[in-house]
Design a protein around this nucleic acid. Structure first.
Lengths: 300, 300
DNA sequence: TTTCCTTACGCCTATCGTAAGCATA
DNA sequence: TATGCTTACGATAGGCGTAAGGAAA
């Protein structure tokens, strides 16, 4: 079989048109170089070089083969580099699932890091609720999920990503819309509130329901929704107030005021990273290495 | 350095996903195959296969590299074949010079043979008088000439290609246009004749001049031309008769009759192949091998 | 006579095959 | 226990380097 080393030998001789100089370039002596060229010619079944003891010239076949040999070697070089990069996790594709709410917080951190540290990694994003992310991970449809805490099947791995408090979104003019001090949760007793769907936003629903019942607070649920921006639209229309993760305050709604809750309110919205434990994607492993521990609520 | 053999090993394992079957396909035993894969992975700096003792799967890097490896091997295969064909003279390009007159005879034989036996060889044709062909051959501008006999510089090689007698082209109504018996050359004594240019058709000019003077025949030259079809046009117009190579009878001119010359007339128009002795074009050498010895005047 | 490609030959590295090792279902 | 990849090891083939050969200017 023809070898890549033989191609390199031929290219050197074809470019130098001199066995001695070509051998020097290849860090070897002339005789083995001659032999390699002879072997190559025998393998190919045609002479590539016309060599009298005083000159070396390319045959027509050699001219044609030179281009091919150069391309083959370049291609091999390129493929080697590509594999090295993919293996190092600095190249390839990363499919990331995220919940709608994480678009304001955790997802941005992950994307920023990926773009900064793994610029050659292509990122595929798809918005999925937590349960759908778990399914997609199990099927290998995505590599990484940014999801709310939920059940923890053993074949998936988890890591805390982000935690933030809730704030109250209050329509301007509402009795609770005035005042600057943080609100206690008890302020919501008997108050009209837009709540989370127990099905599509089960995590938030359960979280708030538990917190309210622990304190004996009973808000008046006027609607159950799953998308935060829809809830804020209802708040804006004056239906009532809503409790949303603080990062949602990045959405500015005319006529909606955000008020922080008192520090003793035990409500935290968490995001976590989820991946299939058996996933060997170098890009995923590299990203997980790079992602720092969650820095709590250092941001708005 | 990565070797093509290693690429072949990897492709086999990647396709079989089983070292044993892959080794069988490669006509070798498993252990060296395992070792080659290990070496390849070390060279590349990244694992290509994820193998537990019960299953073999491709890593992301392996998936990407598989395509590259396949392409590199295919490319090498293709280049090998191409070089073999060029070396065998069954591919490549052949630049052929020819004299206008040879278009009716020798050139057609050469082209027919090339098309039949060397279908992958591209043929470049250019019409050149004999002297220009010699120059073009010396400069390497053409590979093969189809020319009239002339000087024989030592760096050019020659071979007789075709030989044919002359015929007389006579305008209908001319005294010599009637009768079926071959004409003797003496019939042209004192007769109006269209002759060949001593410059551009030196070969024909010298040939006829010598034949006439040997017999003491003196035709009346009414014009000197170099292109046979121009001479026939003058014959058609009644200026006189002309002696043309028999293959020119393939040109049918209304009002022109061709009469053969007597067999004892020592007039033969020759064509020869000319090439640069140092030309190593396999296509040329192959064509020269294939071209039979001239078969004299077996054709019209 | 010099240049420079080729042939000859000994050494050594690398691959192969056989055999044993070892993990997993 | 059987399957199947890996490690160990001896034999061999092929490549490299040194030295000698041979053709051309």
């Amino acid at each position: 079989m023809v070898t890549l080393a033989q191609l390199a030998c031929f290219i050197a001789v074809a470019e130098e048109l001199h066995f001695g100089r070509a051998a020097e370039r290849l860090r070897m002596t002339q005789p083995p170089l001659s032999r390699q060229i002879q072997l190559l010619e025998r393998h190919l079944g045609a002479p590539l070089l016309d060599r009298s003891s005083r000159s070396v010239r390319l045959t027509p076949a050699g001219r044609a083969f030179l281009d091919d040999a150069r391309r083959i070697l370049r291609d091999t070089e390129r493929a080697t580099l590509a594999v090295r990069q993919i293996g190092a996790g600095t190249s390839g594709t990363l499919r990331i699932g995220f919940t709608a709410g994480s678009a304001h917080s955790g997802l941005q951190d992950v994307l920023q890091l990926a773009r900064a540290e793994l610029p050659s990694v292509a990122v595929d994003l798809r918005e999925l609720v937590t349960q759908k992310q778990h399914e997609a991970l199990s099927e290998g449809a995505i590599d990484l999920g940014i999801a709310r805490p939920a059940s923890r099947p053993p074949h998936l791995s988890f890591r805390a990503l982000y935690e933030e408090p809730f704030v109250a979104a209050v329509p301007v003019g509402h009795p609770l819309s005035s005042g600057d001090e943080p609100l206690p949760l008890t302020a919501l007793h008997q108050i009209n509130a837009v709540m989370y769907s127990p099905i599509d936003s089960r995590y938030f629903h359960d979280l708030l329901t538990r917190a309210f019942s622990d304190l004996g607070v009973i808000p008046q649920a006027v609607q159950h929704l799953s998308q935060i921006h829809s809830m804020l639209a209802l708040v804006q229309a004056g239906w009532g107030l809503a409790l949303v993760p603080r990062s949602a305050t990045r959405m500015r709604f005319e006529g909606v005021r955000y008020r922080p809750l008192r520090a003793d309110v035990p409500l935290k919205a968490s995001l976590e990273l989820v991946w299939r434990s058996a996933n060997d994607s170098p890009a995923l492993l590299r990203l997980l290495e790079l992602l720092p521990a969650p820095d709590d609520d250092a941001r708005p």
